[in-house]
Design a protein around this nucleic acid. Structure first.
Lengths: 219, 219
DNA sequence: AATAAAAGTGAGTAATCACTCGCTAACTGT
DNA sequence: ACAGTTAGCGAGTGATTACTCACTTTTATT
């Protein structure tokens, strides 16, 4: 278990090291920070503890990050991009429009499966985001912006497309989003955060969730 | 605005002062603690700050609460009872069974309206619970216990009753709960925490939410 | 090989924190 | 009116914190 976990954390860190400009020690710092902060929270994690866990002098942390908060932001900011990645990609709307998916339900299924896998491989990072979002307005702002500028418009385009095809009820997009999004997020949170150790039949749960959503907004 | 807020906080505190055994100063401490902690979080709030805001010496806080965490627990523990109050009451299941509500939809409507009002008048307290839940296992345990022992069984009874009446689909209770609960909580969180300042047509939103749920689990 | 720049170190520091303690003031029961 | 208990005070304390800085080691450049 600890083996696979170590693997996991290294994978997480590599996502943050997109430019490959980071030192070995810097990667160790990020790895340790994600691990400890996701378990105990930002304010319960001291920089000395991170340094120790990373096998690094405390000064080294501050060579790379001016403040402790800078370190948090460096961890948390990239996540917003990855969470909403499908909506940023030009592909997304095109794919939805193309013949890849015959119905909205098919599209939704592919989407939920995709985000399911993302959450599955990023639980520690997402835990940090969830926990710290309330306390750091700058982080909030980043997420709010990504949502209003990218995610929401992309969602609307897709919904409009399938409305024309007659797959969806004649309800305002706003309303559909406000109903469907919590259904998906609610499932993911119970699955990976509230009851991660329960026995889950993932495929079945996803299908049930989509059925539920389709009953609410589908024709 | 600050007037109505002061009113609100005093009301919140009186809920915690059920035995009426508390000193004036103790009430001031709770009022100040709820206010500051709900805004800035537990770890960003110092006891000296609470004392200052409460107009009290710092030592007075520790006369009533052995530790800072004891103060948090004193604030947060009673909330669990109030959140799940309807499920504790013997009334609840009886009411659901009686002729008060002809259909499950009527029952659900009354329930959601009731919880809506509760959340509305307890936003600061609920913010604290939401924010601190991840970091304090004891608090988690209290909520988990209330859910498995009281809330979940009561829900099941009610669902079974309306299933027999033919109001609900033939789906496991477990599944119904996992779908319906996030719909309600999702609405309340967007309404009071994510977008508290948006223009809301509350009655309409509640009806839409219930429609959505009924499409998913109703016949 | 020489030089400069960047990465890494760890003892040191000022500030802040939760909490204590010896004291006084206010209340309570007789 | 008195004694005993509880409430309130606030200067003081030891521990911990994020962060600094003078110094060494490693890496990159020519």
């Amino acid at each position: 278990m600890s083996d696979s976990n170590e693997e996991m954390f290294k994978q997480l860190v590599e996502t943050l090291n997109q430019d490959n400009t980071m030192t070995q020690k810097q990667l160790q710092i990020l790895e340790a920070a994600i691990k400890i902060i996701s378990e105990k929270g930002y304010y319960n994690t001291s920089t000395s503890e991170i340094a120790k866990q990373a096998g690094v002098a405390e000064g080294t942390i501050f060579r790379h990050y001016r403040t402790k908060k800078d370190l948090l932001v460096a961890i948390v900011t990239p996540v917003v991009t990855n969470i909403s990645a499908p909506f940023f990609a030009e592909q997304f709307v095109d794919q939805a429009f193309s013949k890849s998916y015959q119905t909205f339900e098919e599209f939704l299924y592919a989407f939920v499966e995709n985000r399911f896998e993302f959450v599955k491989t990023n639980v520690p990072l997402l835990k940090i985001v969830l926990q710290e979002l309330s306390f750091h307005p700058e982080i909030q702002a980043a997420y709010k912006r990504a949502f209003t500028e990218k995610v929401h418009p992309a969602m609307c385009e897709v919904l409009n497309h399938y409305k024309k095809r007659g797959d969806l009820k004649d309800i305002p997009n706003q309303t559909m989003i406000r109903m469907a999004v919590p259904s998906i997020i609610g499932f993911l949170i119970t699955r990976f955060i509230i009851q991660p150790n329960a026995e889950w039949n993932d495929e079945q749960e996803i299908k049930q969730t989509i059925d539920y959503i389709m009953n609410g907004i589908g024709k």
